[in-house]
């Protein structure tokens, strides 16, 4: 006897079990990550690092905490990327074009 509510509730229960499983998985992963996390913290301490490598495009994004105090995009030490341009604008093509040919010439060895 398969009744519509059995199917719906069964499926919901399954989804709920998966939901619960994510918390178990999270706990397990936290456990396995812990050692690596400590080593990473250690490395950051040893190398005197101040910022994670999240965005490498500009210095105010690579080292947000170390960037200039009073400059565009960085008004305040606690402020972080006020403007959409930080995410949307690539660097000026002019600059890229000027550097690239020079370096192509010069970088055969790697």
């Amino acid at each position: 006897m398969s009744r519509p509510s059995d199917r719906v509730l069964g499926f919901t229960l399954l989804a709920a079990a998966l939901f619960a499983a994510t918390f178990v998985d999270a706990a397990l992963r936290r456990g396995t990550h812990e050692a690596a996390l400590q080593r990473t913290a250690r490395l950051a301490e040893d190398l005197r690092l101040s910022d994670p490598v999240l965005f490498t495009e500009a210095r105010y994004t690579r080292h947000p905490t170390q960037a200039d105090l009073h400059s565009a995009f960085q008004d305040h030490p606690v402020a972080f990327e006020h403007f959409p341009s930080g995410s949307l604008l690539p660097p000026p093509a002019l600059l890229l074009d000027r550097h690239e040919p020079l370096d192509r010439e010069a970088a055969p060895s790697d």
């Binding site: 690596a36 080593r39 990473t40 490395l43 950051a44 190398l47 690092l49 910022d51 994670p52 490598v53 490498t56 690579r62 020079l102 370096d103 010069a106 970088a107 055969p108 060895s109 790697d110």
Partner: peptide, 28 residues
């Protein structure tokens, strides 16, 4: 080789790669 601001090339030998597990702080 990296090209210095002076224009000259400097060549380095890679002797080690930092652990992948710590990439969050060391990638670049």
């Amino acid at each position: 080789s990296f090209r210095a601001y002076s224009g000259e090339l400097h060549t380095f030998i890679v002797t080690g790669v930092l652990a992948h597990e710590s990439e969050l702080v060391s990638a670049d």
